[in-house]
Structures are given as structure tokens and as C-alpha cells.
């Protein structure tokens, strides 16, 4: 295997939210297989700047797979071909010299494009605002060990809580549904004693907001689970459905 790659990139360029976008084709040469995907884009951007062309805009920050900033549909797959991997953790050794790579932004009505590959994911924040919290003011807490939490529940809640809010689930879903995202937060709190007092209100409010933001519905295709870099499973969606039914049927 050679240590460097020559690649053709087909990248979505869009100057502003209202401007029409188009694909542009770029060539990159001598890309080290040790580079991350974003470092490859850095190299391309440096090249574009030196040629007087504006660099490609893409969201990124921590570059260690935890902040959820990076996105990208890479050859039609959210965060590229690797499972449980964000784009920033995807490395070029995954590609072969001569490959053509198609790079698109997340596409969903609820995630409008800001520029090039950058989209507006504030709909997620608004869903969280609707109910993704425990209503407890600072200073009200009892001792951390006053309420015991069985390890298996704590572990499950943790697994749900590891969602990084990147939006890959929406991007990968054929319906652009945000069910996996919502279900992860609803599950975390449904599994913990701290989440019980607002259990019903939370699920109702978050689902209502999710619908209002224009995300699609779930058709149990499970593509979100396969695309999720944090390994959130569709067990959470089943739990969300269960929580929703429970909230519907129970009285206050």
C-alpha cells in the first residue's frame, strides 16, 4: 500500500443560505494515509487559498470525536464509511489512490445550509430547550449518594447520554428524522431517578418540538443507528415510543 494518495473530490459549494449550490471538482495529491479526513480538507483549503479561491467552509472543532461539530456526507454516508466514527476521526488510510469522493452537507429541512458544508443545527438546541433537562436549581442538591442508582441503570443512562448531537442520525435517515437524538436524551432521564418527576412532560414537550422543527418521522429503518458515531442504539427509540405511550395514557 502506498503511503500517499491522489484523490478527486466532488464538493458541494454554496455561497450563502439563499444562493444556489453546485458541486465542484477538486484534485488533491500526495495525501498521507495518516491524515484525518479534515486534515485532507485543510490541505485542499491551503491550496485553494494560494490559488485565490475561497476555502471550503466546514464545521469542526475538537477534532477528537466528541464535540459533535463535524459533519459531512462522504460518498453518501454520514461521517464516511467507518462505524462509530466521526469525520474528524476518519483517516485517509480508509481510501485508495484514485478514489473519487463525493462530499455533501447534511441535508434536511430542519438543517438549512449556511455555507458550503456548514448547516444550521440549532433545531437540536430548541428541542433540548423544550425539555432536555431536570428542573433543579443550583444549590438544591442532596448528597450524591443519597439516591442510589443501580449500576446497570447508570450504565444504560450513560450510554444514552453519550450522544454528541452531531445530527448524523438526521442526515442518514431517509425521513430526516431526529428520533434517535430525541430518544437518547429522553432515555437518559427515563432511566435515572432524577428524571422521574418530569418524565411525562419531557417526552411530550420534546416530541412536539421535534415535529414542529420539521423533522420527519421514524420508519424503523435503523439507518440512524448505523450512522451514529456515538453508538446510540435504536433501543432508545423503542424506549422513546414507550415513554410517549406511557405519557399519553397516564394522568398527571
Amino acid at each position: 500500500m502506498s503511503d500517499t494518495l491522489n484523490l478527486t473530490l466532488k464538493v458541494w459549494r454554496q455561497a450563502s443560505p439563499s444562493a444556489p449550490g453546485e458541486f465542484k471538482t477538486y484534485k488533491v495529491y500526495d495525501i498521507s494515509t495518516h491524515m484525518s479526513f479534515l486534515e485532507m480538507l485543510d490541505v485542499l483549503n491551503e491550496d485553494l487559498i494560494s490559488k485565490g479561491e475561497e476555502p471550503i467552509a466546514f464545521d469542526h472543532d475538537c477534532r477528537e470525536g466528541i464535540c459533535g461539530s463535524c459533519s459531512l456526507m462522504i460518498n453518501g454516508q454520514a461521517h464516511g464509511p467507518d462505524r462509530t466514527t466521526t469525520t474528524c476521526q476518519l483517516h485517509m488510510r480508509r481510501f485508495r489512490s484514485g478514489d473519487m469522493i463525493v462530499i455533501e452537507p447534511w441535508r434536511a429541512r430542519a438543517f438549512p445550509v449556511i455555507r458550503d458544508l456548514v448547516v444550521d443545527r440549532s433545531a437540536f438546541d430548541r428541542i433540548m430547550t423544550a425539555g432536555g433537562y431536570v428542573s433543579v436549581n443550583t444549590g438544591n442538591a442532596v448528597d450524591g449518594n443519597a439516591v442510589l442508582v443501580p449500576k446497570q441503570n447508570a450504565d444504560k443512562a450513560f450510554a444514552s447520554a453519550t450522544c454528541i448531537g452531531c445530527g448524523a442520525c438526521v442526515a442518514a435517515c431517509k425521513n430526516a428524522s431526529a428520533m434517535l437524538f430525541v430518544s437518547a436524551k429522553v432515555s437518559q432521564f427515563a432511566l435515572l431517578p432524577q428524571g422521574q418527576p418530569e418524565r411525562s412532560q419531557r417526552v411530550e414537550a420534546m416530541v412536539a418540538k421535534m415535529d414542529e422543527e420539521g423533522f420527519g418521522g421514524c420508519t424503523n429503518t435503523n439507518e440512524c443507528e448505523a450512522a451514529c458515531p456515538a453508538g446510540i442504539t435504536v433501543d432508545n427509540i423503542a424506549r422513546l415510543n414507550r415513554e410517549y405511550i406511557r405519557a399519553t395514557l397516564t394522568a398527571e
Binding site: V136, V142, P150, K151, A161, Q188, G195
Partner: peptide, 22 residues
Amino acid sequence: ANIIDQCVAQGVPFAREYGGVL
């Protein structure tokens, strides 16, 4: 110590022992 209590109250899923303690 208050920080841990506050975070637990918010539903932060800290690692726990089998008995349920932190």
C-alpha cells in the same frame, strides 16, 4: 463536594458501583 451533588441532581450519569453508590 457540592459540585458532585449538583451534577448528580441534574442527571449526570457518573460511574457507579453495583450497590448503586458513586
